[in-house]
Design a binder for these strands. Structure first.
Length: 270
DNA sequence: AGTGTATCCTGCAGGC
DNA sequence: TGCCTGCAGGATACAC
């Protein structure tokens, strides 16, 4: 469910709440959302204090002190929130009892999300396998162009692969490709330098404005306080098949490849 | 090596 | 109403 803008919104919310909070107790109701044994997971986390919260791609990264890192990937329907109103959590998977404030809840309808504990080195290694952050000032359009050159895969699939660039999921891949006028099935290595520059700009613009709108809520996504994001009405192409393209009024098409829907305008995107 | 597909789950919308 | 099918923001193990 959540892509970079949604995870960024949650991380900013958590930064206001968690640093300094100590985990007093922990209940794992759904063991399949954690890697490894529930007993070890509890042993490692109970008594630890949240030192800082950050984001790497679609991962929420919590520094727990003692060189221990808790990494939360929300999958499709994962969500972190505070238990101020029980009715908000339909599928609680983990309860974190803190020394201050309400209980922190990890809730996940489909349980595709995962919580992982790493030591510092393990996380560095894992993080090194991920691609660059698209919003980092170090990320240049030439980085994107060079990497595109070595791949035959359709550009929409390429954008979803976290080894190439992190944080982009199906919504923002489709949105960026529409804004830059590139067909989702175009082989990555057949994107011209000029087009890759357009894609680079589109990607950053789309992600930044979605962050400003606190993310896209189609169904399950909620911020930490339980509110949906405001970006869904701003979508230009995602989910709009059968409607008119905003640029040229041609009908928006939907096709499926790699088991995911792609939306595009046959006139604006070649 | 580098891609595409099936799979993990539950809920919901739409067709009959 | 109820049953069936398809589809949903992600990541990964596997087959080619």
């Amino acid at each position: 469910m959540p892509e970079l803008p949604e995870v960024e919104t949650i991380v900013r919310d958590l930064q206001e709440i968690l640093p300094g909070a100590t985990i007093k107790d922990l209940q794992v109701l759904r063991p399949n959302v954690i890697r490894g044994s529930k007993t070890i997971f509890k042993e490692q986390l109970i008594g630890k204090t949240f030192e800082s919260i950050s984001r790497r791609g679609k991962n929420i990264v919590a520094n727990m002190g003692s060189r221990l890192i808790l990494v939360v990937n929300l999958g499709m329907t994962g969500r972190l929130g505070l238990q101020q109103d029980d009715s908000l959590f339909t599928h609680p998977a983990i309860y974190f009892t803190l020394n201050i404030g309400p209980t922190l809840v990890y809730d996940d309808v489909r349980r595709f999300g995962k919580l992982n504990i790493y030591n510092e080195q393990e996380w560095l290694d894992r993080s090194a396998q991920l691609g660059p952050e698209p919003l980092s000032p170090d990320y240049k359009h030439t980085d994107l162009h060079e990497k595109l050159n070595s791949s035959l895969s359709p550009i929409r699939s390429w954008l979803l692969d976290q080894k190439n660039v992190v944080g982009v999921g199906n919504i923002y891949a489709n949105e960026s490709l529409h804004l830059s006028g590139i067909h989702p099935q175009r082989p990555a290595n057949r994107i011209t330098e000029k087009e890759s520059q357009l894609l680079y700009k589109a990607l950053r613009k789309i992600l930044l404005s979605a962050i400003q709108n606190r993310g896209t809520t189609l169904r399950n996504y909620r911020d930490v306080s339980g509110k949906g994001g405001n970006n869904s009405t701003k979508l230009r192409i995602y989910g709009r098949h059968g409607e008119n393209c905003l640029g040229c009024s041609e009908q928006v098409q939907r096709i499926v490849f790699s088991n995911r829907s792609a939306f595009f305008c046959p006139r604006c995107q070649r």
